[in-house]
């Protein structure tokens, strides 16, 4: 099935693309058919360049993970962010 399940959020930081680093401004997250990952449905994240306008091809960093990997990654990110050192510095 196509889930059409898509959410997006503002982000700030940098992503490394084929042509070097670029500023990212938006994350589009979806669980649907991937382009390349060998699974029927993948947790996909597109980190899109800041200031990208509609009707153009923005730079993006793309990630397609199977659901288990994606959950593990999310938990790992949260664990790092929730560590005392990170909480103190964030």
């Amino acid at each position: 099935m196509c889930t059409y399940l898509t959410r997006d959020t503002e982000v700030a930081g940098s992503g490394l693309g084929a042509d070097g680093w670029f500023s990212v401004g938006r994350a589009v997250v979806y669980f649907d058919h991937p382009q390349d990952a060998p699974v029927d449905h993948a947790l996909c994240v597109d980190l899109v360049e800041r200031g990208a306008t509609a009707r153009s091809a923005p730079k993006r960093m793309a990630l397609e993970l199977d659901a288990t990997s994606a959950r593990r990654l999310a938990e790992t990110i949260l664990a790092v962010l929730d560590s005392p050192e990170a909480l103190e510095l964030a």
Binding site: T6, D46, A57
Partner: peptide, 21 residues
């Protein structure tokens, strides 16, 4: 096509999805 003229199919699909399809 309109969402990312000349882009790769993957980039165009991503741009279309980000625009709501």
């Amino acid at each position: 096509h309109r969402y990312a003229p000349g882009a790769s199919p993957g980039d165009a699909a991503a741009a279309a999805r980000a625009a709501g399809g």
